[in-house]
Every structure is written in C-alpha cells, then in structure tokens.
Amino acid sequence: MLACGQKAFAAGAIETLMDIFIQQLVNGITLGAVYAVVALGYTMVYGIIQLINFAHGELVMIGAMVAFTLIGVLTPLGVPALPAVLVATLCAMTACALLGYAMERLAYRPLRRAPRLAPLISAIGVSIILQHLALLVWSRNPLAFPQIVKTESFALAGATITNIQIGIIVISVAMMLGLAWLVYRTRLGIAMRATSQNAQMAALLGVDANQVIALTFIIGAALAAVAGVMVGSYYGIAHYTMGSALGLKAFCAAVLGGIGNIPGAMLGGVLLGLVEALGAGYIGDFTDNVFGSNYQDVFAFMVLILVLVFRPSGLLGERVGDRA
C-alpha cells in the first residue's frame, strides 16, 4: 500500500504542527471510512456464520477493476463523468454481488458442517483464485483511474481536503446508514440478526438460513465493490494485489470494533484509519527517525495483536471465547 497519509502532507509547505495534525486527521478519516465499509463485509459474514472470509479483500479489488475498466470504455463514448462513474459502480456492485454469491455457494456452503479450519482454508484458496484470475484478465500492470473527475482542494482549518476525500466520506457514511437501516429496521435485517444469534431457532421460526446467508454475502460484496471504487479513485490506481492488504486491515478494523458487531466495524474502521495516519505522521518524530512512515502497514497488525491480547471482544463486542 502507498503511504497515502503523506501525499497531501508532502505537498504542503511549512505548516504548523497543528496543521499537520489536522491534515492527518482528514486523511485518517478518509481512509478509515473506506476501512469501515470493507470491515462491514467481514463483520456481517462473521456475525452470521463465524467465518473469516479471506476473499473479501479480493472483492474490493475486483470492484475497482471492473469499475475502472467500464469508465475507461464509457468515457471515450462521450458519456459524462458522473453518469459514467455511477454506471460503472453499479456494474461493479452487481459483478461483486454475483461473485460473493458464487463464493458462498461453491466454496463455503458445502463446508458449513466441516471442522472450523476447513472453510478458512477454502477461503484462502478463493482469495488466491480471484487474485490470479484478475491478473489474467487485467495483467500485472496497474489500471490508472481515468482522469474524468478533476481533483479540487479546499482549505479546512489549516489543512486541505479534496473533493474526492469529501466524496468518500459522504458516500461511506451514507452506506453505513443504509446498512444500519437494513439491519435494524427491515425484515431481512431481523432475519439476519436472528440467524446470527441462533441459526436453528431462526430456522424454526421460518427464516431460510441459506437465503439469509447468501444475501449477507451479496450485500457485503456490493459494499466491497463501492469501497474498491473509492479507494481506487483516492490513490488513482487499481492493481490486482490491492485487495489483500486492504482486506487485512479492514479485518483488523472489524476485530478492533468487535467482530460480528456492525457499529463496531464502523468505529473500528475509522479508528484504525486515524491510528495509521497519525502513527505514520508522527512515528518519525517519536523515534528520532529510526522508524519512518514506511512502517505504516505495521500499525494495523500491532493494533490487531494488542486488541486480541487485551480485549479479544473488541471495543463494542461481546465476549469471544470457547464454551464448554
């Protein structure tokens, strides 16, 4: 991953410490919003079938790849920027939703009664397959985000925020609210929560668990696609390996918030984004430049390990432990 926290920062001239802080805050929240959206996919699937869907990060990648390809096709045809992005994103969401469904049906559903490790290993396999199919389709070279949306910067309390950052934050918040509505206010949401509490009981009450699980995968995958488009436009490129690191960090975010807990995933995502941005921004100062921002990727894992050791249930989660 790129040290994005540094991008806007390096461009600036001499700024005061406060300005740097605010800038890192802005960058951290942007990144954190993306983590949160991806983390939702992990947490929803985990909540319902206790599976860490390793391949979720690859869905983010495929979402970005599909959308970028389509924008590249649509723009030369004279389609204006906004509709092009919109159509491309919708197509990416559909593609990922289908993929998410296929993944669940083919790789996970047959293993629902297998020992715990089996679906996890299968998920790793799916992740490798998706990554290398993407490599076959899109080659090793990164896809550049077509420059159809002009980046504009706005001053914000001594820092700058770009229209893309604003877009990412707004869209992420909207999607989180939408998901919260879906989970807490609709029949499907009730069925999902019931299944995750007690699948057998939910089945007795007429919930079709298979359908609910499939829908969970589909929703998570669609969210991943949007996250892919957002993170791709933020960095300006999409690449067949972009999913794994992002996916891992989002998973860390989900654990930080309390895996299986939807508000937890949102909180965890934003917090992790902040930790990374601020950590990368200040680690050089703290350590007399022995460590630099090239250690940014370490933070997520450090947070993960610390959380698991000291508070395995995460910030908002319930106790995770074996039962007798």
Binding site: A107, L111, A114, I121, S122, G125, V126, S127, I128, I129
Partner: peptide, 9 residues
C-alpha cells in the same frame, strides 16, 4: 487456489 478449495470440499 483450486487445490485448497477442492480438497476442502
């Protein structure tokens, strides 16, 4: 990748 998925299934 396929080895992992197919073997598990």
């Amino acid at each position: 990748g396929f080895a992992l998925v197919l073997v598990m299934s």
